[in-house]
Design a protein around this nucleic acid. Structure first.
Lengths: 209, 209
DNA sequence: AAAAACTAAACAAATGTTTGATTAATATTA
DNA sequence: TAATATTAATCAAACATTTGTTTAGTTTTT
């Protein structure tokens, strides 16, 4: 879908507001006001509020799977290095698109918007298939142990990162880090999460620590 | 807060609807209709829709910390056994109160309802403190390694379980398990998650697999 | 008789969407 | 090039519903 600059403005404004207040907690007038446009423009460009959400999903989805595919094709990296790259990729993705992932994490709990549910289902299925291939490659090469439950492994990765990122305001308070600048906090968290998950995945995949 | 049976009906109906459609996606008339009561009864008993949500949180929160405290006090179990009990406890908790945790996981992403945010913050702070004590006990006794990042460890546990439970409809589809009866599916998932997290926690806490 | 529980109806405010008109940009013709 | 026609973009206002809450009265319980 081709988007002009005004459409992008609307989508990105909606993204911010949906992330902060939820889809149902955000009115089209909120979006219009924040984006500095007339309410009618939302219907004019997207048809409806719900289709705006779908447009947002399409907008953010493009190029997601691509990265994983190129990782899989890499012939230089061994399977564990690929897994580590995947971990880095997901952590970066969640931090770089926090607003979008807040919306996504809410929508996937129980989306009454079936078009969105279908899109999310599609991402998940596709990505999980790719990761399965990376892990199976490692198993064939004798790097990884057999009997790895990939859905649960992915749930651990996605669920943990998602939880850590979307609730970081709580962790700032719990650990008295309210005054730490955002970029510094993020840098710290990224580093910690990377080390943490690389350790966990190595333990699970190789049974070595 | 003392609750009569009608108030409990309202709270539990609201819980179900909030979990399925979100707080803002559920109207007081939805709740009234589903609960078979007059709309005015919600204001009459709880004051407002938002205070109903607060009442729901209080209703479900009671006795949560209690279990962890009694676990901590246990003198027979060694620290790793305590950690394993905690894992079992959280997995059971999420499965037994799925609706509530769906609401909670949505609210903690970014709650505009400060009273709720405060309550969640309270739970988290209290529970994390208790778990910290269990782990520190294990470190003093020489069972566990030093330098364990408890917030990230908890994020892994809570985030993963929460994600697995709240998105289990996706995992049914991805793994073609749509036809498996709910209780059988849950039993399977519980078993898998238990084994998975006990393995992970042992690896992190003891550096042994 | 007093208090509590319950109800239908009304309230104002907010919701997503459409209408009908106006302005701006682009294409076509003279 | 200048004038005109056509399409796209923008707007304020109106639309019908739906929202959470309150009122004023009735029924039930104590």
């Amino acid at each position: 879908m081709e988007l002009n600059s005004k459409q992008v403005t609307i989508i990105e404004t909606a993204e911010k507001l949906f992330a902060d207040r939820g889809y149902d907690g955000t009115s089209v007038r909120n979006i219009a006001e924040e984006a500095g446009i007339n309410v009618a423009m939302i219907s004019y460009y997207f048809g409806s509020k719900e289709k705006l959400l779908e447009a947002l999903f399409s907008y953010r989805a493009e190029g997601t799977t691509q990265k994983l595919v190129s990782m899989l094709a890499n012939k230089v990296l061994n399977p564990l290095e690929k897994v580590n790259m995947m971990i880095e990729y997901y952590i970066d993705k969640f931090y770089n698109q926090t607003s979008f992932h807040k919306i996504m994490s809410r929508e996937q709990v129980a989306s009454r918007r079936s078009a969105i549910a279908g899109l999310i289902q599609g991402f998940k299925k596709r990505n999980q298939q790719l990761i399965k291939e990376i892990i199976q490659e490692g198993q064939k090469a004798g790097y990884f142990t057999k009997n790895i439950d990939i859905p649960i492994l992915m749930s651990t990765l996605i669920g943990s990162i998602s939880h850590a990122v979307t609730t970081q305001h709580f962790y700032r308070e719990i650990n008295n880090l309210q005054d730490m600048p955002e970029d510094q906090f993020q840098k710290m968290m990224k580093k910690k999460l990377n080390a943490h998950f690389k350790f966990i995945f190595k333990a699970i995949l190789t049974h070595e620590v």
